Amino acid sequence: MAEQPDKRINITCTQDVYNSMKPYLFDEVVEHFYVILLNRNNQVVKLHKISSGGTHGTLADPKR
Score class of each variant (00 low, 15 high):
1 M>E: 13
1 M>W: 09
1 M>N: 04
2 A>C: 08
2 A>S: 13
3 E>G: 11
4 Q>Y: 05
5 P>W: 05
5 P>Y: 06
5 P>T: 02
6 D>H: 05
6 D>S: 02
6 D>Q: 10
7 K>M: 13
8 R>L: 15
9 I>R: 06
9 I>F: 09
10 N>P: 00
10 N>K: 14
13 C>M: 05
14 T>Y: 07
14 T>M: 08
14 T>A: 05
14 T>R: 05
16 D>A: 00
16 D>G: 01
17 V>C: 02
18 Y>I: 07
20 S>P: 00
20 S>F: 15
20 S>D: 07
21 M>N: 02
22 K>F: 06
22 K>A: 09
23 P>I: 02
24 Y>F: 13
24 Y>D: 13
26 F>M: 07
26 F>Q: 10
26 F>S: 03
27 D>Y: 14
29 V>E: 11
30 V>K: 11
30 V>Y: 14
30 V>R: 11
31 E>K: 04
32 H>A: 05
32 H>K: 13
33 F>D: 01
33 F>M: 10
34 Y>N: 00
34 Y>Q: 10
34 Y>F: 15
35 V>G: 08
35 V>F: 08
35 V>Y: 12
37 L>T: 08
37 L>R: 10
38 L>E: 05
38 L>P: 01
38 L>G: 01
39 N>I: 08
39 N>W: 10
40 R>K: 14
40 R>A: 07
40 R>N: 10
40 R>V: 07
40 R>W: 04
40 R>I: 04
42 N>M: 15
42 N>A: 06
42 N>C: 15
43 Q>H: 15
43 Q>D: 06
48 H>A: 06
49 K>H: 08
50 I>E: 11
50 I>L: 15
50 I>A: 12
52 S>T: 14
54 G>S: 13
54 G>V: 03
54 G>K: 13
54 G>Y: 07
54 G>M: 07
54 G>P: 07
55 T>F: 09
55 T>D: 11
55 T>W: 00
55 T>Y: 08
56 H>V: 10
56 H>A: 08
56 H>K: 15
57 G>N: 09
57 G>L: 06
57 G>K: 02
57 G>T: 12
58 T>L: 03
58 T>W: 11
59 L>E: 11
60 A>C: 14
60 A>N: 08
60 A>W: 15
63 K>V: 05
64 R>H: 09
64 R>M: 09
